[in-house]
Simulated assay, not measured.
Amino acid sequence: MANQTRIKSAETTLRIIETIKTLDGAGVADIAAELGRPTSTIHNYLQTLEANEYLIKDDKTYRVSLRFLGLGKHIEDRLQIRKIAMPEIDELADRTGELAGLLVEEHNKGVYVYLHSGDKAVYLDARPGKRTYLHQTGLGKAILSELSEAEVDTIIDEHGLPRATPNTITDRDRLMTELAETRERGYAIDRGERVSGVRCIAVPINPSGEKPVGAISVSGPKSRVKGDFFEQQLPELVTEAANVIEINYRFA
């Protein structure tokens, strides 16, 4: 959208909601300080959002309301890849004992849309709806590997290659080499590039062969994700699941 057509009040409303979500509830003064806006202005926005039932007020703390739960359910219901991938992701988590997940691309970032934990899975900050830079994850690199060089350049131009850990790839040429290797072997490897100490194998979901609709992965601590399990068994399991998902997606 062109800058001249952007509505500042709408952007402020969205930033207020995002701030309340990030802070897990906040008062007027905290939100105003976070956004650098007058308290009186923020108060007017909050009253409007509360009156329309998008916020609730708990004493002096504002929180997002359950109205967003309905919006989230609507998104889940229309996201076909999520419905199709869920059984395979659940099975991956159960068979490996680790965390299995599905990520899709939106606005040139990755968005986690489904996760399932096996009985040994470690706790990570990934959750449905969380956004992440594509180059920082195995899932994101799997998706990037299916795009053209020009498309990857567009994403880099928009978001850069910010570092999350010492292992994050922050050089364009190195990333392009990594993506070429990913295409050749059919799966992406995350060597602690978003979360230190966590390894991941990810495979793109590309039913049409033209543009990926997402990627699936299994992640776990490097103390367990190593050796033959990391180099052979896990890639085979995730690739097999991705193949099933692509077939089911194609004929759904």
Rank of each mutant, 00 (worst) to 15 (best):
D77W: 12
V152S: 04
G36E: 04
R63D: 03
T5D: 13
Y45L: 01
E240T: 11
E11V: 12
K60V: 05
I245K: 07
L115S: 02
G25C: 00
G27P: 07
L124P: 12
V244W: 12
V111W: 10
N108Q: 15
V203Y: 00
N44I: 07
K57P: 01
I205E: 01
E240V: 10
A188Y: 04
P221E: 10
I205G: 00
I89T: 05
E105A: 14
E50C: 03
T48H: 05
Y187H: 07
Y45N: 00
I189L: 14
V213D: 00
P162G: 07
T12M: 01
D157A: 09
D157I: 08
R78Y: 14
A85T: 00
T165G: 12
L92I: 15
T165V: 12
A85L: 05
I56Q: 09
I156M: 10
Y62R: 02
T13D: 03
I56T: 10
R185K: 08
H107C: 12
K130I: 06
I247E: 12
G70D: 12
E53H: 11
R63M: 08
L237G: 06
R6E: 11
R183Q: 07
A150T: 08
I247L: 11
T5W: 12
G220W: 03
I143P: 02
D190T: 11
L115W: 08
Y123S: 14
Y133R: 14
R174G: 14
T22S: 09
A164M: 06
G70H: 14
C200R: 02
Y45D: 00
R6I: 14
I169A: 01
D90H: 15
T137Q: 02
A180V: 13
E50W: 05
R127A: 15
T5K: 15
L124V: 06
Y133Q: 12
T165W: 06
M176V: 02
T165S: 15
I143D: 03
Y133L: 09
V152G: 14
E105Y: 10
A29I: 02
P166W: 01
L144V: 05
K57R: 06
Q4R: 15
V225S: 06
K211Q: 13
I247A: 08
H159V: 00
R224C: 05
I169Q: 03
S217D: 07
K226N: 07
D125C: 13
K222F: 13
A241N: 01
L14R: 09
A164W: 09
A252E: 03
G101D: 07
L144S: 04
K8C: 00
I155H: 05
A188R: 11
L14K: 11
K109D: 08
E231M: 06
T13H: 08
D59R: 09
S208T: 06
A32N: 01
F230G: 05
V225R: 10
N243F: 08
V244I: 10
L179V: 05
T41D: 04
G160K: 13
T154F: 11
L134Q: 11
T182L: 10
R199H: 02
K120Q: 08
P38K: 05
D77S: 15
Y133S: 14
K211A: 12
G138F: 01
L144N: 02
E181T: 14
N44S: 12
D90T: 13
E246L: 11
G214H: 09
D171G: 04
H107E: 12
T177H: 13
F230C: 03
I42W: 00
I155S: 08
L147P: 05
P204S: 07
A121Q: 00
T22R: 10
P38L: 10
E240Y: 14
R163K: 14
T137M: 01
D119N: 14
